[in-house]
Design a protein around this nucleic acid. Structure first.
Lengths: 213, 213
DNA sequence: ACTTGTCCTGTCATGCCGTCAGCTTACCGA
DNA sequence: TCGGTAAGCTGACGGCATGACAGGACAAGT
């Protein structure tokens, strides 16, 4: 599927080349965590990797191109976010647990990849199709699963007939994503206290009623 | 309170100076809407304003500084976002209306200022205190009002005692902000269809029960 | 040892950044 | 009307990042 790793000028990358490439990606990832996206320069990444800017440009067209590569890797991992939902029930006490698991998994994933996710979010919001696709890939696994659950519960008449399952699911997931990336900015609310409240909202949105704890 | 407008090197700005300054801000605003934040250069803004880069640096320390200025102006306007909530009831049919009004106002404000809000969001997420403060200023008016409402309803026993009003309100507002900035990215859900569903979630989160339409 | 293709870097033209000295313009009091 | 003073603007410059290329270093096979 991925084919061979290629340099910008078309050569196939060998063992050493791939190592250098990966090292550049790792250093870029670090830089993203430590300085504003706008200030991340090719030359800094190259220096950190103990190589030269010219080498960087052999493997990536520019900083954005390299970020996209990192994001793809992350998206592949993040597609498994919905794993929690596969075998999770939304009925009774189990529903509360499922909601909690979802929130936990989400916040955890976000904390591990916050710097990269910020950039992906920005790119997507700016209308860049490539970033939007990656963002969708990450979120869709969860949104899709939630949509299915809501649709099912809706057919049982528990939820407002007028509600659009996809819209509700998308909004809930957006909420999780947004809260996750601004966790520190919640003045007066401790992170530990945030989780159950998010779970409460998710449960409310999905099932239409308060959780049984 | 605001004091006089001053140049970077301490001179007080007169009529002409303020006009130039404002023109630079306007052009910056346009550039933010039309190109990725990362690619907005001082020289482009200056050219667009029919002046030189040196002039730009007379009024702002850098691009970020100018963006902060724009954001402050926006925050002043956005602080009125909660106006809808002041005289809005959350009881019965009126509650549904209030929720809809809130969603409407929010999405509208976001659409009018999307480019700037993206940058503020990024800055805040990256940990920049100045951007975080501005973001809080915009959101707090709404969050605060919602928190009060939830607290009140909670005392009447309608909502889960364990819920933290501030956390729930914050999460709902974050949801609105996030959805607003990714409106185009909601595949398969039309914007018009999005609103009532957001209102539904807000109503559910605030009052704990389905709206009466 | 020689060939071949991968891998890296020195170097260069170009362009943006951020600063300064110095010029022009507007305002004001005499 | 006429300087004087401060505001306002810009050309020009050193510094640094970008992005391209050609050529040298290196590993592997023969």
């Amino acid at each position: 599927m991925t084919g061979q790793v290629r340099t910008v000028d078309g050569r196939v990358a060998g063992r050493r080349g791939q190592a250098t490439r990966q090292k550049l990606l790792d250093c870029l990832s670090e830089m993203l965590s430590s300085s504003p996206y706008r200030d991340v320069k090719v030359i800094d990444v190259a220096r950190k990797a103990g190589t030269s800017p010219a080498t960087f440009y052999q493997y990536f067209p520019d900083v954005e191109g390299a970020v996209l590569e990192l994001a793809e890797q992350m998206a592949a991992e993040g597609a498994g976010l919905a794993g929690v939902l596969e075998d999770g029930s939304w009925i009774g006490r189990a529903g509360w647990q499922t909601a909690q698991n979802l929130v936990d998994g989400f916040l955890d994933f976000w904390r591990r990849n916050d710097a990269l996710l910020r950039v992906v979010d920005l790119g997507a919001a700016e209308g860049d199709k490539r970033f939007a696709r990656i963002r969708a890939k990450i979120l869709n696994s969860v949104t899709g699963s939630l949509t299915a659950t809501i649709t099912e519960l809706q057919s049982k008449g528990r939820i407002d007939k007028d509600a659009n399952p996809a819209a509700v699911a998308g909004a809930l997931v957006a909420m999780l994503a947004s809260v996750a990336s601004h966790q520190k900015g919640f003045q007066g609310v401790k992170p530990a206290e945030l989780k159950p409240n998010l779970a409460l909202l998710v449960h409310l949105g999905v099932t239409g009623k308060k959780p049984t704890r």
